[in-house]
Design a protein around this nucleic acid. Structure first.
Lengths: 212, 212
DNA sequence: AAAAATCTGTTGCAAATACAACAATTTTAC
DNA sequence: GTAAAATTGTTGTATTTGCAACAGATTTTT
């Protein structure tokens, strides 16, 4: 069961069970690398990650893969959140995982008579809001005008999230370069410059910022 | 009043008036270039664009401007949707505009007793969902690796939205450069290259793509 | 209708970045 | 436990991009 801070926050176990039953929700298990089907045309299906991790990925016409979103326990995904027209989008399990599906329209109907449905809708709203903030962060990083600034912004953000001047980089440098949309070797060079200028310290991917 | 397709969809004029009154909403007028203040700490304020246009912009410490989001009639903005990394974020009116402010938490409370509040919450949800899709598009543009590709991607997207090979650029070139987070003069140079290479035609900001 | 401000189009040059290529190290797979 | 694959670290060089600066065109203000 997803912890109380997530999508089921402020709903009592018993009431939740009833609500999910009333919504005719279904729960499925997936193994690593399995594709999670969720798009049912005409219906607004929302998937709730009960446990495990998955990626929302796009395969464009060249077959190039891009990770659009990373989904963890308590996170949600839906065809409501992505453009349906063009390229192929799939949710692919990166670990064993458990997913509950509900229909958004059913939830909406239940709001009239069931207070817990309102709470769930609110939790969904907050989750989408969180997604927006995450995307915004990404945009802010991508719109800084140099590799040096991208790195510094990213490091500052991570340190801030960690309530510290340090944090552990959980990306490989190769992935970080992809995330920041910059050339890896150019990034490595700039990383070296930052270290030489003593703006950061990097001990085994524990990065510490020495400014301000 | 915002048209029925927007944030007030499916709410009768009379009921809407009552709802907004119950929510103790306030409405303000702004003139072009005016900054719209909306962040009130501790409260979740949502601004609804009744009419006019505005941009959500960032000024970084160097004074460089980047357009983060474009707001049109029927769109919403809120400090719930952004969490700035370090730099300054503001909503700036690009035309004369009218904005109604409501408190999210008040709306939520009203959902228990007022069906129209549920409808409004649903409309807000759908709007946020639309924002998610838009930001995703932006990220796709920003992650392309050169000015040439950024321009081509942007042009292709706009043309596609227009169901055509052409579209009218509604940005000034100065703004487009800010939107794509690139240097204006470098962009102008690349724009010239694209024209010289006959990949695009640009007649008075009506841009036509000549590929594929 | 004149003045001021902004936008467009251009260029030379310096600086930043991407590309390519490779060896060394680490991680993953069998 | 070894082979294969991926990541890291580095460098020289070509290319792209940003910066600065300007003149002409267009738009806005007064």
């Amino acid at each position: 069961m997803v912890e109380k801070q997530g999508i089921y926050k402020n709903i009592e176990e018993k009431n939740l069970k009833k609500l999910l039953h009333d919504l005719q929700s279904t729960t499925h298990l997936y193994t690593q690398t399995e594709t999670i089907a969720y798009s049912i045309s005409g219906r607004n299906i929302i998937g709730i990650m009960e446990s495990g991790n998955a990626n929302l990925v796009r395969f464009d016409y060249d077959g190039v893969r891009t990770i659009i979103d990373e989904l963890a326990e308590g996170d949600i995904f839906s065809d409501m959140f992505v453009e349906t027209i063009s390229s192929e989008l799939s949710v692919i399990a990166t670990t064993k995982c458990k997913v509950t599906f509900i229909e958004y329209n059913e939830l909406l109907k239940k709001c009239k008579s069931n207070e817990n449905a309102i709470i769930l809708l609110n939790n969904l709203f907050k989750n989408v809001t969180k997604k927006l903030i995450k995307r915004n962060e990404r945009i802010e990083l991508l719109t800084t005008r140099s590799i040096r600034n991208k790195l510094l912004s990213y490091f500052e953000l991570q340190a801030k999230k960690n309530n510290s001047k340090s944090f552990n980089l959980r990306y490989t440098y190769t992935d970080l370069a992809d995330y920041l949309a910059i050339d890896r070797s150019a990034m490595m060079r700039e990383l070296k410059n930052l270290k030489d200028d003593k703006l950061i310290t990097d001990i085994n991917k524990k990065i510490t910022i020495n400014i301000k």
